[in-house]
């Protein structure tokens, strides 16, 4: 394994925000690339890693164009949480 491959695999594996499926996909993709492409790939993954670090420090960046996506995102997050409350057999007030 060359040093770029190692750096990329370490970056991917250390990322707590990536699902296992995505981690494997990104690693498989790495081995379908040539060395020059790997360098570019590393830069992109490095950019994402920095974004994750910012996120963990609470820095949100939302572009106006993404507002619609974010609407659904927050709705989804909320729905998931409410569902989890429901599934947890937690005794809460009845609706209405």
């Amino acid at each position: 394994m060359n040093s770029i491959e190692k750096q990329i695999i370490d970056l991917i594996n250390a990322n707590q925000y990536l699902s296992e499926d995505l981690k494997k996909r990104y690693i498989v993709a790495l081995f379908l690339m040539e060395y020059e492409k790997q360098e570019e790939y590393l830069k992109l993954l490095d950019g994402f890693t920095r974004r994750c670090e910012e996120m963990s420090r609470g820095i949100f960046i939302v572009h106006p164009a993404e507002a619609g996506t974010m609407l659904r995102t927050y709705d989804q997050a909320k729905a998931d949480i409410l569902k989890k409350i429901g599934n947890g057999n937690i005794n809460h007030n009845q609706p209405q």
Partner: peptide, 8 residues
């Protein structure tokens, strides 16, 4: 979800 929608 914010990261999934990130440009990066």
């Amino acid at each position: 979800n914010q990261l999934e929608n990130s440009e990066e």
